[in-house]
Design a protein around this nucleic acid. Structure first.
Length: 245
DNA sequence: ATGGTAGCAAAGCTA
């Protein structure tokens, strides 16, 4: 598996996975255990499914957003050492105005309420995953991609994401690469399989690592491993990482 | 405006 090779090379302390697309029992745990990872799963057949891998023990696991009845497995949170982490797969929303779109906005509302409450504990926290929103113009290929009401870039979606930021969270990759970073530096995290998007570098930055203030205080570096997208049979997403002291 | 590709799972849905 490509992800196993990548983990062997980089050996991150904590890994947040989205779209594992299988029940817990079908997850290939042994491959990750062989690399020294503990595993917490919130799996689901066919679609969705999230996971946390960590070198240290994984404690106090929460599966699903609190106070949100959700038949889809899109949220898992846990304590790893002194760090609280969450692996999040925000709904795609399919089309602006559709039922799935309002489910997405609803998910954002519930996520905001949960994060707001969590921040009161002043822990070192990282909420990471596929947010399915490109929050700023620099997070898409051109201004055209932000016009009209398209999924990932619509006004309501970008507002929903920014409301998370206004709670006091720090977008780790944006700290490393300020918004005026020129285009063409592959500062995207996802390229559609369709329409030759990767070859034309028509991607979006929709995968984010959001840091609580105590986590932001320990920020060292962040980035996106975009070259992984060029591999044969690659995921349409590239790994996003942050290093904290 | 449409359709382009890929994964899962076995036709069509999701992204």
């Amino acid at each position: 598996m490509m992800v196993v090779e990548w983990l062997r090379e980089h050996s991150p302390d904590i890994v947040l996975l989205q779209e594992i697309k299988c029940e817990n029992a079908a997850f290939p745990s042994e491959f990750f255990e062989d690399l020294g990872y503990n595993i917490a799963l919130h799996g689901q057949k066919t679609y969705h499914g999230v996971a946390i891998l960590a070198k240290l023990p994984i404690e106090d696991v929460i599966r699903g957003l609190p106070d949100f009845e959700d038949p889809q497995s899109r949220y898992i949170e846990a304590l790893v050492g002194a760090v609280r982490v969450a692996s999040i797969y925000v709904p795609n929303g399919q089309e602006v105005g559709s039922d799935k779109f309002y489910y997405k906005l609803n998910f954002y509302n519930r996520l905001k309420a949960h994060i707001k409450q969590s921040l009161e504990a002043k822990e070192i926290s990282v909420w990471g995953g596929d947010y399915n929103v490109a929050p700023f113009l620099a997070d898409g290929p051109n201004e055209e991609a932000f016009k009209g009401e398209r999924i990932l870039t619509s006004q309501k979606e970008r507002e929903a994401f920014r409301e998370l930021l206004w709670l006091g969270l720090t977008d780790a990759v944006r700290v490393q690469y300020p918004e005026d970073t020129p285009h063409g530096q592959h500062l995207f995290s996802w390229w559609d399989y369709r329409a030759n998007s990767w070859a034309q570098n028509k991607g979006f930055r929709i995968d984010h690592l959001l840091l609580s203030p105590p986590a932001a205080d320990r920020f060292e570096a962040a980035g996106i491993e975009s070259q992984v997208r060029a591999l044969d049979k690659a995921s349409d997403h590239a790994p996003v990482w942050v290093k904290l002291r």
